[in-house]
Amino acid sequence: MERKQPVSVTASDIGQAARCPYALYLEKTGHVPNWQTRLARERGIEQHAQWTCSREPGRICSCWGRVFMIIALVVALAVFLILRL
């Protein structure tokens, strides 16, 4: 006799169910969380993308990193112009 497969759930849902299964149920049935929670989730997604990017070898992910690169370019151009005069 074939064994019946259990209902498939995600590890994230299991974590949420450990906190409160009813909150998970509300979320799955289309209820929208308050704005603080939505904001925290958006920040979490952004931070995750940043974290993943920072682990890629040689990639510049931070806003400051890009600013530094632009400064480097401007300084190099200034040196070029000063030396030309």
Partner: peptide, 8 residues
């Protein structure tokens, strides 16, 4: 929690 998630 696994059983609770399955219930949902």
């Amino acid at each position: 929690p696994l059983e609770a998630a399955r219930v949902v």
